[in-house]
Amino acid sequence: MSNQTKHTGFFASLENSPSTNEFIKGLWRENPVFVQVLGMCPVLAVSNTAENALAMGLATAFVLLMSNILVSTLRNFIPKQVRIASYILIIATFVTMVDYLIQAISVDLHKALGAFISLIVVNCLILGRAEAFASKNTIGKSMLDALGMGFGFTFALFCLGAVREILGNGSFFGIPFFPENFQEWVVMILPAGGFFTLAMWLLIFNAAKNKG
């Protein structure tokens, strides 16, 4: 493997494993939200309902996948002095495309995600994977890495969104979840609720990891 330091131990253990590990690691062992704690802005801001969280997660996963593929394809063509600028250019392009695509899918969804779609550009998860992984690995591996990380991110966002919508809005995917006289915990929908929920999930996740 190459001269990377961060993943040395991990890759050493992968030497004889199937490439599915490239995919699995993003879902669990190196989950971008619960383990790496990357990309907190959309995690806290757009996880107020399950639907918004899922849409945001999938949009980010798409951008991650496409930018990883392109960065990996061009990894021998981009001089290292201009690599960050090139990555940002590539990421921004796919984010702009996603912005148009979401508008074409549903006006309401675009209204709900609002400014956060454009902010995918500066999500450090995407630039992080481009710099740390895609620029050093083959296209196939980069795709698997992006899929794993993207779905791991979506999964984490969905965990937060589901809890916040159920408690804060009394519904799940817009369908009422509790009997009519349930008093919603409005704080869960507000920014503070994002921090509470994230802390709770980190607690559960780390407890499960320490046991296992």
């Binding site: 061009l74 063509f77 001089p79 201009v82 600028a85 090139s86 250019l89 590539i90 921004a92």
Partner: peptide, 12 residues
């Protein structure tokens, strides 16, 4: 450098 930036820019 110029070649790669302009190339990627045009493609994008």
């Amino acid at each position: 450098m110029l070649q790669s930036m302009v190339g990627i820019g045009l493609f994008c």
